[in-house]
Amino acid sequence: MSDHQHDHAHAHAHDHGDHAHPPHGEDAHAPVDDLDSYDPESLLMEQALRELLIEQGVFTAEDIQRQIDLTESRTPALGAQVVARAWVDPAFRAALLADARPALESAFGLDLANTPELTVLENTADLHHVVCCTLCSCYPRNILGIPPAWYKSREYRSRVVIEPRAVLREFGTELPAGREITVVDSTADMRYLVIPLRPAGTEGWDEERLAALVTRDSMVGVAQALAP
C-alpha cells in the first residue's frame, strides 16, 4: 500500500516511464471505489481540509462519522422495499409518483428532510426510463446509497445519452421492440428513482418475495427487475 502510493506520488508529472495513465477518472474500467486509485495529493488535501474544519469548529469528527453511518445505512435494499410496496399498494404507488419524499417518510419512517428532492418514475410496457447524470454523478443516494463506479464513469455518462439501447444491451437488457425510451439526465437539484416494470408471473406474491427481484440496476433503469 505505501509502496503503491509512493509510486503514484510521481504520476502527476504526466510522464513517468513506460506507460501513460489516463487522467484520474477517465478510465472507465478502473476500480474507482478502490482507495488505491485515488490521487494521494487529493487524499492529503481532503485530510488537511477536514482537520482544519474540525479545528475551526465548523463541524466535529462525530458529525462526519454520523453522516457516513447514515449514508452507509441507505442501500439498494431500501429501494427494493419501496418498489415492492408500490407494486402491491396502489394508494402508496400514487402518492409516491405524485410527491415522493413525503410518501416515503410516512410509509417507511425515513427522515429525508436534509436530502435532495426526489422524483419517482414508473416504467411501463410502453415506456422505459434510464437515469444518468452527464455533468457529474447525481444519484438518489437518500434511497439507494452510494452510486456504483460505472454510473460515475465518463463512458456511461457520455454514451447513454447517444446510444441508450446499445448501453442497455451491454447490461444484458434487451427491451421488446416498440418500447419507447426516455433517458433522464439529472442535471440539477432533482434526483430520480425508477420503478421497474413488475415481472410477469408474480401475481399474488408478497412484498418480501417481490423485493428480492428488484436490483439496484433496475432502479437506475439499466436493467429490468429479475424474472421470478
Binding site: I162, R165, A166, V183, T187
Partner: peptide
C-alpha cells in the same frame, strides 16, 4: 444530436 449521430427515436430529459 442529429439523426445520423444517435440511435433512432428516443427522448432525453434534463433539468434546466
Amino acid at each position: 444530436w442529429g439523426e445520423r449521430l444517435c440511435e433512432p427515436s428516443y427522448r432525453i430529459t434534463a433539468d434546466l
